[in-house]
Amino acid sequence: MTGADAHTLARRDRRFGYLLTAPGLAALMLVITFPLLFALFTSFYDYTLLNPRHDDFIGGENYLEAWEEEYLAGSFWVTLKFVLASVVIEFVIGFSVALALHAVNRFKTVYYLILLAPLLINPVVVGLLWRMLLHAELGIANYVIGLFGISRVNWLGDIGVAFWTVVLVDIWHQVSFMAILLLAGLAALPREPYEAARMDGASAFRCFLHITLPLMRPVIMVALLLRLIFAIKTFDIIFIMTKGGPGTSTDLVSYFIYRAAFFGLDIGRASAMSVGLLVIVLALTTYLFRYMRSLR
């Protein structure tokens, strides 16, 4: 084969590659880039559902209005707390479960299936289900803890409790995602370093600290980032379970924006808030990504 032949071959390969990826890229453009730009564009217009046209350019007024929203700052704060609480707890539980499962040799499939079950349930159903179980007067949860002499908990009506109830339900629903991802990472780790460490008489804990953790870092990074982004978008369980209440204690930003768009009919203002949220999420993920890479 001559060099020129190889050249054309490579070019043909590349062209074939473009051809294969083109539909996917086009679809991505259509469903991600376009809506993103559309939202950005819309955020500078007085675009409402009553007058869905870009005919009234108002500059940064939507952003100003969002800034002046009395309850928006509180909503961001609740979201931050929610994201931190759910991601951290899910990581701790998820990693423990993954380590435990990694050490198990028998009935692995059974455990996998049990773990996956909540993930397969639609979030709306999860919300409805838990609302029923947590009914303060008639629910099973209070009945069961009553058997142990614990007094009734006002799961969704108490200002202090409702936030943690929502966090718990989110953990119940999403923790297996974390566990499965981390478990896959554990399964792919090489055996040799552990064997060497064993020979040197390292304890299980030291093995974990000095081998497992460093080797798992890329997987942990991906798992945390994914969950973080998902957690910020949490909407369904709030919408179904609390409507942001009691008071404002579970009013996540996503539901706040939803209300501006579909109850307030103000797509322009909702877009401005979404852009703001996007900027925050992007900054946060970039920072985290850099930070984790720097640890390597």
Binding site: H135, A136, G157
Partner: peptide, 21 residues
């Protein structure tokens, strides 16, 4: 009104009364 009323919608409230409470 029963505990949790602050979070009931009409279906939860309905059940309390329908259960004779």
């Amino acid at each position: 009104s029963p505990a949790g009323s602050e979070s009931y919608c009409f279906d939860e409230a309905f059940n309390v009364m329908a259960q004779g409470k």
